[in-house]
């Protein structure tokens, strides 16, 4: 029961503070799921699974974490706590639709906040690199760089990238 309450609390926090899209949410999720024993490589695996299954990363990570911690009930509690508070907020926002959209301050806020979101995403990438000790593992380093080039230069789809990197893992490890 206490675990369920902690789960709910964590994912309400993530939902309410998750500004700037799924990727900017990653470091928040990363920190919150630590207390449920999801650390290091497993968190990265969840991200991989979220990319491969339908739907947004935010929901996928919540459901997975909840399921691992407390089965189906946990999955339901985590997912609902993640999306319900913002759903309520959005209902209110939709009411003020026209007042909101013309607001210059909101625009300015988000322009100024972008570097903050970039920092958040960068921090989670760096934390994950530390988790898999990428500096000491030249194979992982090579896969990272190769995938980076495939994505950036050749616009590979993430499906291709997962198949290739999975094959590389089988081959090299």
């Amino acid at each position: 029961m206490i675990r369920l309450i902690l789960l709910a609390f964590s994912f309400v926090k993530i939902g309410i503070l998750g500004f700037g899209g799924g990727y900017a949410m990653i470091p928040l999720i990363q920190r919150e799921v630590q207390q449920f024993g999801i650390v290091g490589g497993e968190f990265i695996d969840i991200l991989a699974l979220s990319q491969m299954t339908p739907g947004p990363i935010g929901i996928n990570t919540a459901t997975y974490t909840g399921y691992k911690v407390a089965g189906f009930t946990g999955a339901a509690v985590a997912t609902v706590s993640n999306v319900l508070p913002t759903f309520a907020l959005m209902l209110v926002a939709a009411h003020f639709f026209y007042a909101f959209r013309a607001n210059r301050r909101v625009e300015l806020f988000f322009r100024l906040a972008r570097p903050l979101f970039i920092g958040l995403i960068a921090s989670s990438a760096l934390l994950m690199m530390r988790d898999i000790r990428i500096w000491q593992d030249y194979k992982a380093c090579g896969i990272f760089l190769a995938v980076f080039v495939l994505l950036y230069r050749y616009r590979f789809s993430f499906w291709m990238v997962f198949i290739l990197s999975g094959a590389a893992g089988l081959l090299f490890y």
Binding site: L47, M128, I132, I143, F148, S165, Y173
Partner: peptide, 16 residues
């Protein structure tokens, strides 16, 4: 073993 290869790829996806 496959996951060992996929993890660095996920990080590259996050960097994009």
């Amino acid at each position: 073993r496959a996951l060992n290869g996929i993890r660095p790829a996920v990080i590259a996806l996050v960097v994009m």
